[in-house]
Design a protein around this nucleic acid. Structure first.
Lengths: 244, 244
DNA sequence: TCGTGAGAACGAACTAAGTTCGTATCGATG
DNA sequence: CATCGATACGAACTTAGTTCGTTCTCACGA
Protein backbone atom coordinates (compact mmCIF):
# COMPACT_ATOMS: atom_id res chain seq x y z
CA UNK A 1 0.00 0.00 0.00
CA UNK A 2 1.09 3.53 -0.60
CA UNK A 3 1.51 5.80 2.34
CA UNK A 4 -1.93 6.40 3.83
CA UNK A 5 -0.99 8.99 6.41
CA UNK A 6 -3.40 11.81 6.80
CA UNK A 7 -1.16 14.65 5.77
CA UNK A 8 -0.59 14.84 2.02
CA UNK A 9 2.73 16.51 2.73
CA UNK A 10 3.96 13.32 4.30
CA UNK A 11 2.69 11.43 1.33
CA UNK A 12 4.57 13.64 -1.05
CA UNK A 13 7.71 13.11 0.99
CA UNK A 14 7.06 9.39 0.89
CA UNK A 15 6.86 9.52 -2.88
CA UNK A 16 10.32 11.03 -2.95
CA UNK A 17 11.74 8.39 -0.68
CA UNK A 18 12.59 4.99 -2.06
CA UNK A 19 9.53 2.99 -3.01
CA UNK A 20 8.05 1.11 -0.07
CA UNK A 21 7.66 -2.64 0.11
CA UNK A 22 4.41 -2.15 -1.74
CA UNK A 23 2.12 -4.93 -0.64
CA UNK A 24 -0.41 -5.23 -3.39
CA UNK A 25 -3.47 -6.18 -1.33
CA UNK A 26 -6.83 -5.78 -2.93
CA UNK A 27 -7.61 -3.14 -5.49
CA UNK A 28 -10.10 -0.60 -4.18
CA UNK A 29 -13.60 -1.62 -5.12
CA UNK A 30 -15.40 1.58 -5.85
CA UNK A 31 -13.63 4.64 -7.12
CA UNK A 32 -12.17 6.54 -4.22
CA UNK A 33 -10.11 9.49 -5.26
CA UNK A 34 -6.48 8.52 -5.13
CA UNK A 35 -3.19 10.05 -6.12
CA UNK A 36 -3.16 7.70 -9.09
CA UNK A 37 -6.55 8.77 -10.32
CA UNK A 38 -5.62 12.41 -9.90
CA UNK A 39 -2.52 11.79 -11.94
CA UNK A 40 -4.53 10.03 -14.63
CA UNK A 41 -7.00 12.87 -14.80
CA UNK A 42 -4.27 15.50 -14.89
CA UNK A 43 -2.45 13.72 -17.68
CA UNK A 44 -5.66 13.46 -19.62
CA UNK A 45 -6.26 17.16 -19.30
CA UNK A 46 -2.72 18.03 -20.33
CA UNK A 47 -2.75 15.64 -23.27
CA UNK A 48 -5.98 16.99 -24.66
CA UNK A 49 -5.92 20.64 -23.71
CA UNK A 50 -2.35 21.43 -22.84
CA UNK A 51 -0.58 22.31 -19.63
CA UNK A 52 -2.17 25.74 -19.43
CA UNK A 53 -5.58 24.12 -19.12
CA UNK A 54 -4.41 22.14 -16.13
CA UNK A 55 -6.31 23.60 -13.21
CA UNK A 56 -7.39 22.06 -9.98
CA UNK A 57 -10.96 22.60 -10.97
CA UNK A 58 -10.48 20.99 -14.34
CA UNK A 59 -8.90 17.91 -12.81
CA UNK A 60 -11.61 17.72 -10.20
CA UNK A 61 -14.24 17.97 -12.91
CA UNK A 62 -12.72 15.01 -14.73
CA UNK A 63 -13.06 13.08 -11.50
CA UNK A 64 -16.60 14.28 -11.09
CA UNK A 65 -16.04 16.29 -7.96
CA UNK A 66 -15.12 19.73 -6.71
CA UNK A 67 -11.72 21.30 -6.27
CA UNK A 68 -11.48 20.92 -2.52
CA UNK A 69 -11.76 17.17 -2.77
CA UNK A 70 -8.27 16.88 -4.15
CA UNK A 71 -6.58 18.51 -1.20
CA UNK A 72 -6.78 15.37 0.86
CA UNK A 73 -4.32 13.83 -1.58
CA UNK A 74 -2.16 16.64 -2.86
CA UNK A 75 -0.37 19.47 -1.12
CA UNK A 76 -1.09 22.10 -3.73
CA UNK A 77 -1.08 22.58 -7.45
CA UNK A 78 2.67 22.24 -7.72
CA UNK A 79 2.26 18.81 -6.29
CA UNK A 80 0.37 17.81 -9.41
CA UNK A 81 3.44 18.74 -11.44
CA UNK A 82 5.36 16.38 -9.27
CA UNK A 83 2.94 13.57 -10.00
CA UNK A 84 2.91 14.33 -13.69
CA UNK A 85 6.66 14.27 -14.04
CA UNK A 86 6.90 11.13 -11.97
CA UNK A 87 4.47 9.36 -14.22
CA UNK A 88 6.16 10.61 -17.36
CA UNK A 89 9.67 9.70 -16.38
CA UNK A 90 8.53 6.30 -15.21
CA UNK A 91 7.78 5.57 -18.85
CA UNK A 92 11.32 6.22 -20.00
CA UNK A 93 13.07 2.95 -20.75
CA UNK A 94 16.80 2.93 -20.20
CA UNK A 95 19.12 0.77 -22.26
CA UNK A 96 21.89 -1.34 -20.85
CA UNK A 97 24.91 0.91 -21.35
CA UNK A 98 26.94 -0.14 -24.37
CA UNK A 99 30.38 1.52 -24.55
CA UNK A 100 30.38 1.21 -28.32
CA UNK A 101 27.06 2.93 -28.87
CA UNK A 102 26.80 5.51 -26.17
CA UNK A 103 25.94 8.35 -28.53
CA UNK A 104 23.08 6.48 -30.14
CA UNK A 105 21.86 5.39 -26.75
CA UNK A 106 21.85 8.95 -25.49
CA UNK A 107 20.04 10.10 -28.57
CA UNK A 108 17.46 7.40 -27.99
CA UNK A 109 16.81 8.33 -24.39
CA UNK A 110 16.56 12.04 -25.04
CA UNK A 111 14.30 11.45 -28.02
CA UNK A 112 12.02 9.45 -25.75
CA UNK A 113 11.94 12.29 -23.29
CA UNK A 114 11.33 14.84 -26.02
CA UNK A 115 8.42 12.85 -27.38
CA UNK A 116 6.91 12.39 -23.95
CA UNK A 117 7.10 16.14 -23.42
CA UNK A 118 5.51 16.80 -26.77
CA UNK A 119 2.76 14.30 -26.13
CA UNK A 120 1.77 16.37 -23.12
CA UNK A 121 2.19 19.90 -24.42
CA UNK A 122 3.73 22.20 -21.91
CA UNK A 123 4.67 19.71 -19.21
CA UNK A 124 8.29 20.49 -19.78
CA UNK A 125 7.53 23.67 -17.83
CA UNK A 126 6.87 21.45 -14.87
CA UNK A 127 10.02 19.47 -15.54
CA UNK A 128 12.15 22.60 -15.50
CA UNK A 129 10.72 23.61 -12.16
CA UNK A 130 11.06 20.17 -10.65
CA UNK A 131 13.16 19.68 -7.62
CA UNK A 132 16.27 17.63 -8.48
CA UNK A 133 15.57 14.86 -6.01
CA UNK A 134 12.45 13.52 -7.60
CA UNK A 135 12.73 9.77 -7.57
CA UNK A 136 11.85 9.04 -11.17
CA UNK A 137 13.96 11.83 -12.58
CA UNK A 138 16.81 10.51 -10.50
CA UNK A 139 16.32 7.10 -12.05
CA UNK A 140 16.46 8.49 -15.57
CA UNK A 141 19.36 10.72 -14.64
CA UNK A 142 21.24 7.72 -13.34
CA UNK A 143 20.59 5.91 -16.59
CA UNK A 144 21.89 8.77 -18.68
CA UNK A 145 24.90 9.12 -16.48
CA UNK A 146 25.61 5.43 -16.80
CA UNK A 147 25.57 5.67 -20.58
CA UNK A 148 27.99 8.58 -20.56
CA UNK A 149 30.33 6.89 -18.11
CA UNK A 150 30.24 3.67 -20.10
CA UNK A 151 31.25 5.78 -23.07
CA UNK A 152 34.39 6.66 -21.17
CA UNK A 153 33.43 10.22 -20.35
CA UNK A 154 35.08 11.62 -17.28
CA UNK A 155 32.58 11.82 -14.37
CA UNK A 156 32.48 15.56 -13.92
CA UNK A 157 32.14 16.14 -17.64
CA UNK A 158 29.46 13.49 -17.80
CA UNK A 159 27.46 15.15 -15.08
CA UNK A 160 27.67 18.56 -16.63
CA UNK A 161 26.93 17.26 -20.10
CA UNK A 162 23.91 15.43 -18.78
CA UNK A 163 22.57 18.63 -17.29
CA UNK A 164 23.18 20.60 -20.45
CA UNK A 165 21.48 18.01 -22.59
CA UNK A 166 18.51 17.70 -20.26
CA UNK A 167 18.11 21.42 -20.08
CA UNK A 168 18.21 21.75 -23.84
CA UNK A 169 15.65 19.01 -24.36
CA UNK A 170 13.25 20.56 -21.88
CA UNK A 171 13.62 23.96 -23.46
CA UNK A 172 13.18 22.58 -26.93
CA UNK A 173 9.97 20.81 -25.96
CA UNK A 174 8.72 23.89 -24.20
CA UNK A 175 9.33 26.08 -27.20
CA UNK A 176 7.68 23.60 -29.54
CA UNK A 177 4.66 23.38 -27.29
CA UNK A 178 4.37 27.13 -27.21
CA UNK A 179 4.43 27.30 -30.98
CA UNK A 180 1.76 24.61 -31.22
CA UNK A 181 -0.33 26.42 -28.69
CA UNK A 182 -0.13 29.68 -30.56
CA UNK A 183 -1.17 27.79 -33.65
CA UNK A 184 -4.22 26.37 -31.90
CA UNK A 185 -5.24 29.71 -30.43
CA UNK A 186 -5.47 31.17 -33.89
CA UNK A 187 -4.62 34.61 -32.64
CA UNK A 188 -4.72 35.75 -36.22
CA UNK A 189 -1.76 38.06 -36.28
CA UNK A 190 0.55 35.96 -34.16
CA UNK A 191 0.48 32.77 -36.17
CA UNK A 192 3.12 32.87 -38.81
CA UNK A 193 3.47 30.17 -41.37
CA UNK A 194 6.86 29.51 -42.84
CA UNK A 195 6.03 31.58 -45.88
CA UNK A 196 4.87 34.48 -43.78
CA UNK A 197 8.02 34.27 -41.74
CA UNK A 198 10.10 34.21 -44.88
CA UNK A 199 8.22 37.25 -46.13
CA UNK A 200 8.86 39.06 -42.89
CA UNK A 201 12.55 38.32 -43.01
CA UNK A 202 13.01 39.32 -46.61
CA UNK A 203 10.99 42.46 -46.01
CA UNK A 204 13.41 43.66 -43.36
CA UNK A 205 15.48 46.75 -44.14
CA UNK A 206 18.65 45.63 -45.85
CA UNK A 207 20.91 48.04 -44.02
CA UNK A 208 19.99 46.88 -40.55
CA UNK A 209 19.34 43.22 -41.18
CA UNK A 210 21.61 42.19 -44.04
CA UNK A 211 22.33 38.65 -42.85
CA UNK A 212 18.81 37.81 -41.76
CA UNK A 213 17.54 39.05 -45.09
CA UNK A 214 20.14 37.32 -47.20
CA UNK A 215 19.89 33.96 -45.50
CA UNK A 216 16.20 34.01 -44.68
CA UNK A 217 15.64 30.73 -46.48
CA UNK A 218 18.29 28.91 -44.49
CA UNK A 219 17.07 30.43 -41.25
CA UNK A 220 13.59 29.01 -41.53
CA UNK A 221 14.76 25.72 -43.02
CA UNK A 222 14.39 22.40 -41.31
CA UNK A 223 11.73 20.88 -39.15
CA UNK A 224 11.84 21.30 -35.43
CA UNK A 225 13.21 17.82 -35.06
CA UNK A 226 16.02 18.47 -37.52
CA UNK A 227 17.10 21.26 -35.27
CA UNK A 228 16.74 19.03 -32.25
CA UNK A 229 19.04 16.43 -33.77
CA UNK A 230 21.46 19.12 -34.76
CA UNK A 231 21.66 20.57 -31.28
CA UNK A 232 22.08 17.17 -29.68
CA UNK A 233 24.87 16.55 -32.13
CA UNK A 234 26.61 19.79 -31.22
CA UNK A 235 26.38 18.94 -27.56
CA UNK A 236 27.54 15.36 -27.87
CA UNK A 237 30.18 15.42 -30.56
CA UNK A 238 32.61 17.24 -28.34
CA UNK A 239 32.40 14.65 -25.64
CA UNK A 240 35.28 12.26 -25.99
CA UNK A 241 36.41 9.31 -23.92
CA UNK A 242 38.87 10.53 -21.34
CA UNK A 243 42.17 8.84 -22.16
CA UNK A 244 40.97 7.81 -25.61
CA UNK B 1 6.18 60.44 -31.41
CA UNK B 2 5.21 56.82 -31.02
CA UNK B 3 2.03 55.62 -32.56
CA UNK B 4 -0.86 57.32 -30.81
CA UNK B 5 -3.69 55.40 -32.40
CA UNK B 6 -6.53 54.50 -30.12
CA UNK B 7 -6.24 50.76 -30.28
CA UNK B 8 -3.33 49.31 -28.31
CA UNK B 9 -3.30 46.38 -30.71
CA UNK B 10 -2.25 48.69 -33.47
CA UNK B 11 0.37 50.10 -31.20
CA UNK B 12 1.79 46.71 -30.49
CA UNK B 13 1.88 45.99 -34.20
CA UNK B 14 3.63 49.30 -34.68
CA UNK B 15 6.27 48.32 -32.16
CA UNK B 16 7.02 45.24 -34.22
CA UNK B 17 7.29 47.18 -37.42
CA UNK B 18 10.43 49.10 -38.19
CA UNK B 19 10.94 52.07 -35.90
CA UNK B 20 9.10 55.16 -37.12
CA UNK B 21 10.81 58.42 -37.98
CA UNK B 22 10.60 59.20 -34.29
CA UNK B 23 10.38 62.97 -33.99
CA UNK B 24 11.56 63.70 -30.50
CA UNK B 25 9.32 66.68 -29.75
CA UNK B 26 8.92 67.74 -26.15
CA UNK B 27 8.96 65.38 -23.26
CA UNK B 28 5.55 65.09 -21.63
CA UNK B 29 5.20 67.54 -18.77
CA UNK B 30 3.17 65.78 -16.18
CA UNK B 31 3.17 62.06 -15.82
CA UNK B 32 0.71 60.54 -18.18
CA UNK B 33 0.77 56.79 -18.25
CA UNK B 34 2.75 55.66 -21.23
CA UNK B 35 4.09 52.42 -22.59
CA UNK B 36 7.51 53.52 -21.40
CA UNK B 37 6.37 54.13 -17.85
CA UNK B 38 4.56 50.82 -17.82
CA UNK B 39 7.73 49.12 -18.95
CA UNK B 40 9.75 50.89 -16.28
CA UNK B 41 7.31 49.87 -13.60
CA UNK B 42 7.16 46.29 -14.81
CA UNK B 43 10.94 46.00 -14.88
CA UNK B 44 11.12 47.40 -11.39
CA UNK B 45 8.67 44.81 -10.15
CA UNK B 46 10.49 41.97 -11.86
CA UNK B 47 13.88 43.12 -10.64
CA UNK B 48 12.81 43.37 -7.04
CA UNK B 49 10.19 40.66 -6.70
CA UNK B 50 10.68 38.35 -9.65
CA UNK B 51 8.65 37.57 -12.69
CA UNK B 52 6.00 35.71 -10.73
CA UNK B 53 5.13 38.88 -8.88
CA UNK B 54 4.52 40.68 -12.14
CA UNK B 55 0.80 41.30 -12.19
CA UNK B 56 -1.24 43.98 -13.85
CA UNK B 57 -2.35 45.16 -10.46
CA UNK B 58 1.17 45.28 -9.13
CA UNK B 59 2.37 47.34 -12.07
CA UNK B 60 -0.62 49.63 -11.79
CA UNK B 61 0.11 50.10 -8.10
CA UNK B 62 3.66 51.18 -8.88
CA UNK B 63 2.17 53.78 -11.20
CA UNK B 64 -0.30 54.80 -8.53
CA UNK B 65 -3.41 53.75 -10.34
CA UNK B 66 -5.73 50.83 -10.88
CA UNK B 67 -5.40 47.88 -13.20
CA UNK B 68 -7.82 49.04 -15.84
CA UNK B 69 -5.81 52.15 -16.52
CA UNK B 70 -3.13 50.15 -18.27
CA UNK B 71 -5.40 48.73 -20.90
CA UNK B 72 -5.37 51.90 -22.92
CA UNK B 73 -1.70 51.19 -23.59
CA UNK B 74 -1.31 47.45 -23.59
CA UNK B 75 -3.30 44.70 -25.22
CA UNK B 76 -3.10 42.26 -22.35
CA UNK B 77 -0.63 40.87 -19.90
CA UNK B 78 1.38 39.08 -22.55
CA UNK B 79 1.95 42.45 -24.09
CA UNK B 80 3.94 43.42 -21.03
CA UNK B 81 6.26 40.51 -21.73
CA UNK B 82 6.74 41.96 -25.14
CA UNK B 83 7.71 45.32 -23.69
CA UNK B 84 10.02 43.74 -21.14
CA UNK B 85 11.91 41.71 -23.68
CA UNK B 86 12.15 44.67 -26.00
CA UNK B 87 13.69 46.79 -23.29
CA UNK B 88 16.05 44.03 -22.24
CA UNK B 89 17.32 43.18 -25.67
CA UNK B 90 17.75 46.84 -26.47
CA UNK B 91 20.50 46.83 -23.87
CA UNK B 92 22.52 44.13 -25.57
CA UNK B 93 25.53 45.63 -27.27
CA UNK B 94 26.73 43.83 -30.35
CA UNK B 95 30.39 43.79 -31.35
CA UNK B 96 31.64 44.42 -34.84
CA UNK B 97 32.13 40.86 -36.13
CA UNK B 98 35.76 39.81 -36.01
CA UNK B 99 36.47 36.61 -37.96
CA UNK B 100 39.40 35.84 -35.70
CA UNK B 101 37.49 36.04 -32.46
CA UNK B 102 34.02 34.83 -33.25
CA UNK B 103 33.86 32.37 -30.38
CA UNK B 104 34.83 34.94 -27.80
CA UNK B 105 32.39 37.39 -29.30
CA UNK B 106 29.58 34.88 -29.11
CA UNK B 107 30.47 34.08 -25.56
CA UNK B 108 30.34 37.76 -24.77
CA UNK B 109 26.95 38.34 -26.28
CA UNK B 110 25.37 35.32 -24.68
CA UNK B 111 26.89 36.18 -21.35
CA UNK B 112 25.32 39.60 -21.61
CA UNK B 113 21.97 38.03 -22.32
CA UNK B 114 22.36 35.57 -19.49
CA UNK B 115 23.16 38.32 -17.03
CA UNK B 116 20.24 40.43 -18.19
CA UNK B 117 17.97 37.47 -17.64
CA UNK B 118 19.39 36.85 -14.20
CA UNK B 119 19.06 40.49 -13.26
CA UNK B 120 15.34 40.17 -13.85
CA UNK B 121 14.61 36.76 -12.38
CA UNK B 122 12.22 34.76 -14.46
CA UNK B 123 11.95 37.01 -17.53
CA UNK B 124 13.51 34.31 -19.61
CA UNK B 125 10.09 32.68 -19.40
CA UNK B 126 8.79 35.61 -21.36
CA UNK B 127 11.68 35.35 -23.79
CA UNK B 128 10.92 31.72 -24.52
CA UNK B 129 7.32 32.56 -25.30
CA UNK B 130 8.19 35.57 -27.40
CA UNK B 131 7.13 35.65 -30.99
CA UNK B 132 10.19 35.44 -33.27
CA UNK B 133 9.53 38.70 -35.07
CA UNK B 134 10.06 41.00 -32.14
CA UNK B 135 12.12 43.89 -33.38
CA UNK B 136 14.77 43.98 -30.70
CA UNK B 137 15.25 40.23 -30.60
CA UNK B 138 15.63 40.36 -34.36
CA UNK B 139 18.35 42.93 -33.94
CA UNK B 140 20.26 40.79 -31.49
CA UNK B 141 19.64 37.72 -33.59
CA UNK B 142 21.08 39.50 -36.59
CA UNK B 143 24.14 40.42 -34.58
CA UNK B 144 24.71 36.85 -33.46
CA UNK B 145 24.20 35.58 -36.95
CA UNK B 146 26.70 38.10 -38.26
CA UNK B 147 29.32 36.89 -35.82
CA UNK B 148 28.79 33.28 -36.81
CA UNK B 149 28.91 34.07 -40.51
CA UNK B 150 32.02 36.16 -40.07
CA UNK B 151 33.51 33.11 -38.39
CA UNK B 152 32.99 31.27 -41.63
CA UNK B 153 30.11 29.13 -40.47
CA UNK B 154 27.82 27.99 -43.21
CA UNK B 155 24.52 29.92 -43.15
CA UNK B 156 22.15 27.10 -42.34
CA UNK B 157 24.45 25.79 -39.62
CA UNK B 158 24.80 29.30 -38.28
CA UNK B 159 21.06 29.75 -38.05
CA UNK B 160 20.50 26.48 -36.31
CA UNK B 161 23.41 26.99 -33.96
CA UNK B 162 22.13 30.40 -33.06
CA UNK B 163 18.77 28.95 -32.15
CA UNK B 164 20.31 26.18 -30.09
CA UNK B 165 22.51 28.59 -28.20
CA UNK B 166 19.70 31.04 -27.56
CA UNK B 167 17.43 28.30 -26.37
CA UNK B 168 20.04 26.96 -24.02
CA UNK B 169 20.79 30.38 -22.56
CA UNK B 170 17.12 31.08 -21.91
CA UNK B 171 16.63 27.71 -20.29
CA UNK B 172 19.73 28.12 -18.17
CA UNK B 173 18.58 31.49 -16.90
CA UNK B 174 15.11 30.16 -16.25
CA UNK B 175 16.42 27.26 -14.24
CA UNK B 176 18.73 29.48 -12.23
CA UNK B 177 15.91 31.87 -11.48
CA UNK B 178 13.74 29.03 -10.30
CA UNK B 179 16.43 27.83 -7.95
CA UNK B 180 16.88 31.33 -6.56
CA UNK B 181 13.17 31.67 -6.11
CA UNK B 182 12.90 28.42 -4.23
CA UNK B 183 15.69 29.63 -2.04
CA UNK B 184 13.83 32.86 -1.29
CA UNK B 185 10.57 31.09 -0.54
CA UNK B 186 12.24 29.08 2.16
CA UNK B 187 9.85 26.21 1.75
CA UNK B 188 11.87 24.37 4.35
CA UNK B 189 11.96 20.94 2.80
CA UNK B 190 12.51 22.01 -0.79
CA UNK B 191 15.62 24.09 -0.34
CA UNK B 192 18.66 21.92 -0.57
CA UNK B 193 22.11 23.23 0.02
CA UNK B 194 24.99 21.57 -1.74
CA UNK B 195 25.78 19.52 1.34
CA UNK B 196 22.22 18.36 1.68
CA UNK B 197 22.17 17.42 -1.97
CA UNK B 198 25.40 15.52 -1.55
CA UNK B 199 23.92 13.72 1.42
CA UNK B 200 20.87 12.81 -0.55
CA UNK B 201 22.92 11.43 -3.39
CA UNK B 202 25.24 9.39 -1.23
CA UNK B 203 22.28 8.09 0.73
CA UNK B 204 20.72 6.57 -2.37
CA UNK B 205 20.54 2.78 -2.57
CA UNK B 206 23.75 1.53 -4.15
CA UNK B 207 22.11 -1.09 -6.28
CA UNK B 208 19.78 1.27 -8.07
CA UNK B 209 21.89 4.39 -8.20
CA UNK B 210 25.50 3.25 -8.36
CA UNK B 211 26.81 6.03 -10.59
CA UNK B 212 24.92 8.87 -8.93
CA UNK B 213 26.19 7.63 -5.58
CA UNK B 214 29.75 7.08 -6.63
CA UNK B 215 30.17 10.39 -8.42
CA UNK B 216 27.96 12.52 -6.20
CA UNK B 217 30.79 14.96 -5.57
CA UNK B 218 31.41 15.56 -9.26
CA UNK B 219 27.71 15.88 -9.97
CA UNK B 220 27.20 18.76 -7.62
CA UNK B 221 30.52 20.39 -8.45
CA UNK B 222 30.88 23.70 -10.15
CA UNK B 223 28.95 26.93 -9.96
CA UNK B 224 26.05 27.54 -12.25
CA UNK B 225 28.23 29.73 -14.40
CA UNK B 226 30.88 27.05 -14.76
CA UNK B 227 28.21 24.85 -16.20
CA UNK B 228 27.02 27.64 -18.43
CA UNK B 229 30.49 28.11 -19.87
CA UNK B 230 30.85 24.38 -20.29
CA UNK B 231 27.60 24.07 -22.22
CA UNK B 232 28.40 27.01 -24.45
CA UNK B 233 31.72 25.38 -25.14
CA UNK B 234 30.10 22.11 -26.10
CA UNK B 235 27.77 23.90 -28.45
CA UNK B 236 30.40 26.09 -30.07
CA UNK B 237 33.45 23.92 -30.30
CA UNK B 238 31.91 21.77 -32.98
CA UNK B 239 31.20 24.69 -35.21
CA UNK B 240 33.94 24.98 -37.78
CA UNK B 241 34.47 27.33 -40.68
CA UNK B 242 32.96 25.79 -43.78
CA UNK B 243 35.86 25.17 -46.16
CA UNK B 244 38.43 25.00 -43.38
C1' DT C 1 -24.86 -5.50 16.61
C1' DC C 2 -24.01 -0.91 17.16
C1' DG C 3 -21.43 3.13 17.94
C1' DT C 4 -17.48 5.72 17.05
C1' DG C 5 -13.84 8.05 15.24
C1' DA C 6 -10.32 8.80 11.70
C1' DG C 7 -9.86 9.63 7.17
C1' DA C 8 -12.05 11.19 2.94
C1' DA C 9 -15.27 14.03 0.32
C1' DC C 10 -17.33 18.19 -0.56
C1' DG C 11 -20.02 22.73 -0.75
C1' DA C 12 -19.26 27.33 0.18
C1' DA C 13 -16.53 30.97 0.53
C1' DC C 14 -12.14 33.88 0.50
C1' DT C 15 -8.48 35.87 -2.03
C1' DA C 16 -5.98 37.18 -5.99
C1' DA C 17 -5.66 38.06 -10.70
C1' DG C 18 -6.87 39.30 -15.80
C1' DT C 19 -10.09 41.63 -18.19
C1' DT C 20 -14.22 44.51 -19.55
C1' DC C 21 -17.59 48.17 -19.16
C1' DG C 22 -19.33 52.54 -18.50
C1' DT C 23 -18.33 56.82 -17.21
C1' DA C 24 -15.62 60.80 -16.04
C1' DT C 25 -11.85 63.75 -17.21
C1' DC C 26 -8.61 66.15 -19.88
C1' DG C 27 -6.69 68.58 -23.74
C1' DA C 28 -6.32 70.11 -28.26
C1' DT C 29 -8.96 71.97 -31.96
C1' DG C 30 -12.34 74.48 -34.61
C1' DC D 1 -15.79 78.50 -25.56
C1' DA D 2 -17.93 74.15 -27.00
C1' DT D 3 -16.85 69.72 -28.64
C1' DC D 4 -14.82 65.43 -29.51
C1' DG D 5 -11.57 61.89 -29.19
C1' DA D 6 -8.28 59.93 -26.32
C1' DT D 7 -7.17 58.72 -21.73
C1' DA D 8 -8.01 57.42 -16.92
C1' DC D 9 -10.28 54.86 -13.66
C1' DG D 10 -13.71 52.68 -10.35
C1' DA D 11 -16.56 48.83 -10.24
C1' DA D 12 -17.59 44.55 -11.44
C1' DC D 13 -17.25 39.92 -13.86
C1' DT D 14 -14.71 35.72 -14.38
C1' DT D 15 -11.48 32.18 -13.35
C1' DA D 16 -8.27 30.18 -10.22
C1' DG D 17 -5.95 28.31 -5.90
C1' DT D 18 -6.83 27.42 -1.43
C1' DT D 19 -9.16 26.94 3.21
C1' DC D 20 -12.87 26.00 6.38
C1' DG D 21 -16.36 23.58 8.46
C1' DT D 22 -19.36 19.98 7.84
C1' DT D 23 -20.91 15.59 6.31
C1' DC D 24 -20.15 10.96 4.91
C1' DT D 25 -18.18 6.29 5.12
C1' DC D 26 -16.49 2.32 6.85
C1' DA D 27 -13.51 -0.69 9.56
C1' DC D 28 -12.86 -1.84 14.17
C1' DG D 29 -13.77 -2.56 18.95
C1' DA D 30 -17.11 -2.73 22.98
Amino acid sequence: MVDMSADPRQRRAARHARPAAEAAASAPRKKPISVERITDAALEVVATEGYDALTIRRVAAVLGTGPSSLYAHIVNKDDIDDLLIGRLYAEVVLPEPDPAAWREQLRGVFTQIRDLYLKYPGVSRAALAMVPTHLETLRVGEGILAILLAGGIEPRTAGWARDALSLYVSAYALEQSLVQQRRRHQDQEWVLSDEELLDRFTALPADEFPQTRRHAAELISGTGHDRFEFALGLLMNNLRPASG
